[in-house]
Design a protein around this nucleic acid. Structure first.
Length: 605
RNA sequence: UGCCCGAUGGUGUAACGGUAGCACGGCUGACUCUGGAUCAGUUAGUCGAGGUUCGAAUCCUCGUCGGGCAGCCA
């Protein structure tokens, strides 16, 4: 895992460098980061990068990372998302940064106190590792609505915020443009007492949605749009998933975020690049309130993009709602729950995030890199088994009909401790259709007429003929003879065969459905669509292929859903956690094995 | 035509004024009872032009290209 603070390399990335500097200079004495998703969708691989970053930094510096729902917009949020986000975060960091996870006792609110004459609110996290002793939950920005409201009143008292009666359209028109200054509101010089009264009545529910807003009084001439008297509060007479109907005014992101960070004692607030222009406002709010404790420091990094997929929650939501996928956890989705269901280990996702690093430039990481870490992890851990996805019957003519025997197979050549298992063999076996060619192309080493191959850990067989469908001419059965001296796959005379193929005894086979996945989108960058075209047009029509009637070796009948297994020569698979049933297993292909033959074939055209 | 940020092999990321490195991918080959894994080799990069300096990916200037910003979204 990652290095501890002692053997920390001089630089790992620009953010860790900053944290290290802050520590060295005594600006902070304990590192507190946070992961603040809005519960309006499921977490995806882009969030995984942020989680690994925020928890990774907390871990490297013996700090903590709070999980916080950034839930200031009740119209878009839902508890379903709160639950999935919490589960996904815990799953991703399990066994790695559990001890850094900051949560709070259920229902716990920020504590009010006074420091040097200044009103202050503070909440201290309970570390997630202590869960069990008491019921814990994530932090919620909505739990700070009261402190936030008090801070807003304070801002009004300081003459730094005012209630504005202009409509959204008017505000729009008055904001100006990037290259044109804005115009000051007609209500900008409203007396403090009137602002106080109006804002309290906003809270009391006296005005309809949109009638008024609370705005910061900053600078309508600023070249930075976010400093042109930004809206701090809006009126929304809608219930909130966490606070019920206690509130009808809701704080905006910019007002809530920095103050939430402050209330939790966050030292480093790391977010994506698009918030860089908000940073002056983030700092302005903290400074304007003259908050007595150390201010959190916002820094930005580039969000992750991965080829062949989309990352925006809006687009992912459309894929779900419009039925292009089977849900947020569809194994084709780049969501954490989708990847989990598909069989990606958390360790592999973390290794990926570690490898891609963090910087400020726009990036597009190849999906292949993620797959590399999935294979790398699974190669070491996944037990092997034999499964035939597209069965072709092979009859071994000189093997006694009705006889069977058990072969001993190694469970994992990468892990001697994994032991062996026994697999039944008989005179009729299934092999992969791909493993037989009546007319072998150049460099094809598998079974074809007259050619000898090894049935893995069983016997060497030679193809003696084929049986064809008289109608279609298609090969429906292969005839073969075996060499009894090669039991276990060994050749007493030392002769070599070019190929070893997998097999499943027909009479012992377990039937299963296997789901093969390809990339969700055919093109590298699905966001790069011509004007007027929709990104869904780029969906890969063969992203899901369902194979019924696959033949599995008997040991696979009791596969634990979610547990990885390698189907030899094919890839890594896992029984589906939703749809697999005892006696009717359903497997997902997590990722293929690297396939040298496929490359040769491609080159041959 | 405003402000902010960025630019290193195909991709991602290091090098903080002193040998352009690592990983993935690609290509060769070795080995192999998985055409997997493993091993060895190889391919390929500092956006451009000036300047500072003994020395520049790094500092400065001007360009070029890319991204972000005009929600009562986050």
């Amino acid at each position: 895992m990652g290095p501890g603070p002692e053997n920390q390399p001089e630089r790992q990335d620009f953010l860790r460098e900053m944290v290290q500097r802050d520590l060295a200079e005594g600006r902070v004495d304990k590192v507190v980061t946070r992961f603040p998703p809005e519960p309006n969708g499921y977490l995806h691989i882009g969030h995984a990068k942020s989680i690994c970053l925020n928890f990774g930094i907390a871990r490297d510096f013996d700090g903590q990372c709070n999980l916080r729902m950034d839930d200031t917009n009740p119209t878009k949020e839902d508890v379903e998302y709160v639950d999935s986000i919490t589960a996904d975060v815990k799953w991703l960091i399990a066994g790695w940064a559990d001890h850094c996870l900051g949560l709070k006792p259920v229902g716990c609110l920020a504590e009010r106190r006074e420091i040097g004459g200044h009103e202050d609110y503070h909440i201290v996290p309970v570390m997630g590792a202590e869960e069990g002793r008491e019921a814990l939950e994530p932090f919620y920005a909505s739990d700070y609505f009261e402190p936030l409201y008090q801070f807003a009143l304070e801002l009004i008292r300081k003459g730094k915020a005012y209630v504005d009666d202009h409509s959204a359209e008017e505000l729009d028109a008055m904001r100006g443009a990037p290259d044109r200054p804005g115009r000051e509101s007609d209500y900008r010089e409203r007396p403090v007492a009137e602002n106080l009264d109006l804002f309290q009545r906003m809270r009391a529910g006296e005005f309809p949605d949109g009638a008024r807003t609370l705005r910061a009084k900053i600078d309508m001439q600023s070249p930075n749009l976010w400093l042109r008297d930004p809206v701090l509060y809006r009126i929304r007479h809608v219930p909130h998933h966490h606070t019920g109907d206690e509130w009808c005014i809701y704080p905006m992101y910019d007002f809530a975020h920095g103050l939430s960070d402050y209330i939790e004692g966050v030292t480093h607030s790391l977010c994506t690049l698009e918030f860089e222009v908000h940073r002056p406002l983030y700092d302005w709010i903290l400074d304007a309130l003259e908050l007595p404790r150390t201010h959190p420091r916002q820094r930005e990094f580039a969000r992750l993009n991965v080829t062949h997929t989309v990352m925006s929650k809006r687009k992912l939501l459309r894929l779900v709602q419009e039925g292009f996928v089977r849900g947020w956890d569809d194994p084709r989705m780049p969501t954490i729950s989708g990847m989990r269901r598909r069989g990606y280990p958390a360790e592999a996702i973390r290794a990926f995030c570690d490898r891609i690093g963090v910087a400020k430039r726009e990036n597009m990481v190849e999906l292949g890199l993620l797959e590399h870490f999935v294979r790398d992890d699974l190669n070491r851990r996944a037990p092997r088994a034999m499964a035939v996805l597209r069965p072709l019957r092979v009859v071994i003519e000189n093997y006694p009909d009705g006889q069977d025997e058990e072969m001993e197979l190694i469970n994992n050549p990468e892990d001697p401790g994994a032991g062996t298992r026994r697999v039944p063999f008989s005179n009729v076996v299934y092999i992969e259709q791909d493993d037989f060619r009546e007319v072998p192309p150049p460099k094809y080493h598998r079974l074809s007429p007259g050619v000898e191959v090894r049935l893995r850990s069983a016997y060497l067989i030679t193809c003696t003929g084929v049986v064809k469908d008289p109608q279609t001419g298609e090969v429906v059965e292969v005839r073969a003879s075996y060499d009894p001296a090669t039991r276990g796959g060994d050749t007493p005379d030392g002769r070599k065969v070019k190929s070893t193929i997998h097999w499943v005894s027909a009479q012992h086979a377990v039937d299963a459905e296997v789901r093969l996945y390809e990339t969700l989108f055919a093109m590298e960058d699905p966001d790069d669509v011509p004007e007027g075209r929709d990104f869904t047009e780029g969906l890969n029509p063969s992203s899901l292929e369902i194979l019924p009637g696959c033949k599995l070796e008997p040991s696979l009948a009791s596969a634990v859903p979610g547990a990885p297994v390698q189907f030899e020569r094919l890839g890594y698979f896992c029984a589906d956690t939703e749809d697999s049933r005892p006696g009717a297993p359903v497997f997902n292909r997590t990722v293929t094995l690297k396939d040298a033959w496929a490359r040769i074939e491609r080159k041959q055209g």
